[in-house]
Design a protein around this nucleic acid. Sequence first.
DNA 1: ATGATTTGACCGAA
DNA 2: TTCGGTCAAATCAT
Length: 329
Amino acid sequence: MGDSSNNLVHELLQGLELVRQLQKNLHMPCSSSQETHELLIQKIISIFEKALQIVNGNRGPLGEPSSQHSIGVTIRMSESPPLSGSPHSEDSDRDLMEHDHNASRKRKSLPRWTKQIRVNPGIGVELPLDDGYNWRKYGQKGILGAVYPRGYYRCTHRNVHGCLATKQVQRSDEDPNVFEITYKGKHTCTMASNTIPTSTPNENQESNLNTNQNVLQGLEQQPNLNELLLNLRAGLRVQTEHLDSSHDQPFSSFHFPSSSNIKTENQILTSPMLENFSSLSFIPPATSEISHFSVSPSVVNNIGGYPSMISIWENILFMYEVDSCITHF
DNA sequence: ATGATTTGACCGAA
DNA sequence: TTCGGTCAAATCAT
């Protein structure tokens, strides 16, 4: 971690302190004015902007693929064109181009990026590796020169929402513990399997605990720090606007989406706020390189009110530290 | 009954 | 013609 990293942590800590202060103020409405709230929010926003600048300086443009290192799995990401010499080399378009609506069977112009996931043999994970999206297998093919067949998956919501995202899963010849997952197209459905749980989050976690797929879900879906910062900042901005117009319920919109906002699976989100909170509310943004992040207990426990903002901030700090400190698995 | 997976056939690109 | 990607009927799982 260099100077800028220290600066970032410093900024984030400062922001966390401000959020806590804001929380206190909100708890004691009589002892603090609306102006105080707004001032705090402005400060927080400004810290976010600083933090974003630092992050962008360190890591390149938003959405740039990054390495994720975790217990049991190592994930490397690369953008198209992937892997010269691999079976993926048939086309080299790397541009994020318009979707081809001509129903061409080969969607050459879709954005494409590859993850390599190393699975700890002890885990004994079998495919398909769940990455938080709902995939439906539509084919499997033996690939010339490859020991293992390649699996073809498309978004489950393709028919419902016209989501054109697909992925291919190829087990590595050299190392059977490595899975190479090539994603094509971006999700337009915003419907992940890990969207807001219909049951309580804790129930949901417990019910899925100890499954290898969930291990991967959690580990594979750590959010891009940039996205978290952007999303949180977006939330703050929206909230600021609300404060301008209505002064009765500060931070009312900082709630995590409740079941009233998000319906059960296969239904569409309607609230614009949810767009801003896509990754925070466990809904992967369609354009993100990284699907979404694992459900942190601290976030889960605070669903439903502004205290979650503190948890989010703590998450950002925590994730940044993890991201920075762990170099290799 | 419904949805997911399997698998051979088909199609387009090279 | 070969090969990778997709389709769709058959099969399986819930």
